[in-house]
Each structure stands twice: as C-alpha cells, then as structure tokens.
C-alpha cells in the first residue's frame, strides 16, 4: 500500500515552549494508525500541521502526495477532521452546524448524514452550548465522517463519549477500514489504540520514540498485580517467576505487589500455593509506562529500536 501520510523531520516550536522535534512517520492507505502519547507530547501539534492550521518550522508533511501547507485546500477535500477540543459557534444547533459544514464541503449525502445522526442518537435541535461534552463530541464526529472522506484525522476522538457511543465509534472505524479508507487517530489511552489500530506511533516530549505494529508496542505494556494472602508469604517466592519485573512486600508480608510484563500464568500458579484473599490487576497509565520505560537514557535506547 502507498503511504497516504508522509511526515519527515517535522519540527515546530512555540517560542520557549516545546512543540515537536524531528518527527517522522508514515501512514499507509487503508490502515488505522494510532498516534499515542501522554498529554502535551506533541500529538495535537503534529495533527494541526497536517491540517494546515499551523505551519511547521522545518520538515515536510504530505497527505496523498500533496504538501500540507501549500495544497491544503485540496487535502481538506480528502480529509475528515476531529479537533482535540471541539469549539463551534455556541448559538447554532447541532443540525445547523452539520448543515453548515455540509455546505462548506459542497454538499453531502443527506441520507448517510441522517444515518450517522441516528447511529449516535444525536438530538440535532439543541444549541451547541447546551450539549454535554459527549454530545459535542458526537457533532464533530458526525461532521468528520459525513462526507465519507478518504482519510480521517481524529484527535482524541472518543474523549467524553460514553461506552455505548465509543463502541459505535469503534464500529465506524472498522467500517472505514473495511472500505479501504484510512484513519489516523490520536489518543493517550493504550487500550483504546490497541482495540482499533493496526499500527501505532508513540510520541513523547515532542519526539517519536517508537513506531510499530500494535503487538510490538503492547509488548512493552506493563501491569501491576496485587495479591493479598491470609498469611504472610515470602515475596522472594515470586521474584524469579516468568513475567515478574519487580516485587514489593506490604502489610507485613500479607500483601505482595508485583510489576508484571507478559503472561501471568507462573504467578497465578505460585500464588495458588498460599491462601489467597484477593487478587487485583490493573493496567498502568500510559504516563506510567513512559515514566518507567523512556526516562533518561532509556528513551534513547528505545528510540534506536524504532521499527519503520
């Protein structure tokens, strides 16, 4: 597949504030690409450059072979966009907003637009200012999908959506992918990207630190397991087990907290030898992952392992 997004050495600074530095990646036509990173990492800056809302200091950004700055109007004919913080005329109703953008795009298939409204169960008669966060998000999602764009650029698209609508969104992304169209979405939630994307790029502190298939990236995913026992148990019994990275004894040895990466089978079997009161496991935030894996030199080392 040919690349529909090609970004090479993109750099942008906001005076003293950090922007992005030497960002390079590409997105193939037909794939769902996840752009992952903590808040303030540079996801929105990169996306806004692609949408020609801001101009790169250096480097090139191309969509469908067109220069993002000089041929932006042609690019926007191909793209559906959801901004990170949707801001629209607060006095227009949802329906008016959708009609306005339909006109700006030279008209859309009204039947498809109505279908999208029904799928998201949007009340189009309310003013934008009266919508909840989730409903505001629905309006901008519908306007991004309504003209069946060849490429969807979505900046944290599910922020504020309830699980039902998130599920509907996932289905829509899959439909887009099945039709051979492309999605580039940003998120700071690893599990969300895992669910919908085929390939992932991780950005931190304005630089790309890793790009690869979802499986490769999720291999770095750590999680924490906390096991509480009826009696005190030796934490050392877990230290050398497969998947265990760190152990910590708490509550006079009644509780063991384990930092895990990989399968938990060995830990479960070892814990079963003792009277288990409770076992909890939670996925650390992406921020935690970044803090652990990409601090200092580790970041440089990981960057060397970038998979193109």
């Amino acid at each position: 597949m040919a690349a529909i997004i090609e970004v090479q050495g993109l750099t942008k600074s906001y005076g003293r504030k950090r922007g992005i530095a030497d960002v390079s990646f590409s997105v193939d036509e037909g794939e769902v690409f996840g752009f992952l990173g903590p808040n303030g990492a540079g996801k929105t800056t990169t996306i806004r450059i692609l949408m020609a809302l801001i101009r790169a200091g250096s480097g090139t950004a191309r969509v469908a072979g067109l220069d993002c700055w000089h041929q932006s109007v042609d690019i926007k004919k191909l793209v559906g966009y959801v901004p990170g913080e949707p801001a629209l005329d607060p006095n227009l109703t949802g329906g008016q907003i959708l009609e306005f953008f339909a006109h700006l795009r030279g008209g859309v298939d009204q039947a498809y637009l109505k279908q999208l409204i029904e799928r998201f169960d949007l009340d189009t008669s309310r003013k934008f200012r009266q919508y909840s966060t989730g409903n505001k998000r629905k309006v901008v999602l519908i306007q991004a999908f309504m003209h069946r764009p060849r490429l969807l650029i979505l900046d944290e698209p599910t922020s504020g959506l309830d699980p039902l609508n998130q599920h509907e969104f996932d289905r829509m992304v899959k439909e887009v992918r099945d039709e051979g169209r492309t999605v580039c979405l940003s998120s700071h939630i690893l599990s969300e990207v895992e669910k919908t994307c085929t390939r992932v790029g991780i950005i931190r502190a304005g630089s790309i630190v890793r790009i690869g298939g979802v499986a490769e990236v999720t291999a770095i995913k750590r999680y924490e397991m906390t096991i509480t026992f009826g009696d005190a148990v030796p934490a050392d019994a877990f230290r050398t087990l497969e998947g265990v990275i760190e152990t910590e004894a708490l509550d006079n040895g009644h509780t063991v907290r384990l930092a895990m990466q990989g399968p938990a089978d060995a830990v479960i079997k070892a814990a079963a030898r003792y009277p288990v009161v409770s076992l909890t496991s939670h996925e650390p935030s992406l921020e935690d992952i970044f803090l652990r894996y990409y601090e200092g030199d580790a970041a440089a080392k990981e960057a060397e392992h970038v998979v193109a």
């Binding site: 329906g95 008016q96 409204i117 008669s125």
Partner: peptide, 24 residues
C-alpha cells in the same frame, strides 16, 4: 422542547461562510 433529529436543509444562512457571517 421535543428532541429531534431533523436537519435545517433550507436554511440560507448556512450556505457559505459569507451567509453564515451575515446570519451571525
């Protein structure tokens, strides 16, 4: 107010940036 999923298809003020600006 009853919820609705209708669209204001004939609204002149939504036809362009100029028309929308006039509406505003």
């Amino acid at each position: 107010r009853t919820a609705s999923q209708a669209l204001p298809v004939g609204d002149w003020s939504l036809r362009s940036v100029y028309a929308r600006s006039l509406g505003m």
